[in-house]
Amino acid sequence: MNFEEAKAGNILVLTVKANRVAADVVSAFKQGIAGYVTQGNQKIVLDLNEVSFIDSSGLGALISVLKLIGNGELVLCNIHPTVASMFKLTRMNKIFRIFGSRDEAIAALS
């Protein structure tokens, strides 16, 4: 899975370059983000603008990265309505900080 990287100070912004995050690609998704964390990135904005579908394994991968980042911060932005519905259904909106735009997410971590 590919990610587009951008830096805003010490904040890493990752845009997920896929429209589906499901069990068939979840290993690459999880390992990809985890790799950025293990490289030392402790403030990450995950831009899900291109993701219109996420399944339970995708949510599990995000939780795994959230645990991995520990005292760092992983926030989400630009969530598609169907993905937002999934977060609401599973109460993941209680776990993750979700912002409407990339700028808002960066401001929150600055």
Binding site: S56, A61, I63, L89, R91, M92, I95
Partner: peptide, 18 residues
């Protein structure tokens, strides 16, 4: 049900409930 037994921070176990 997604709130049960600290499932919120579990990495698996949501598919059937969905």
């Amino acid at each position: 049900d997604f709130d049960e037994k600290n499932l919120l921070l579990e990495e698996h176990g949501r598919g059937l409930k969905i």
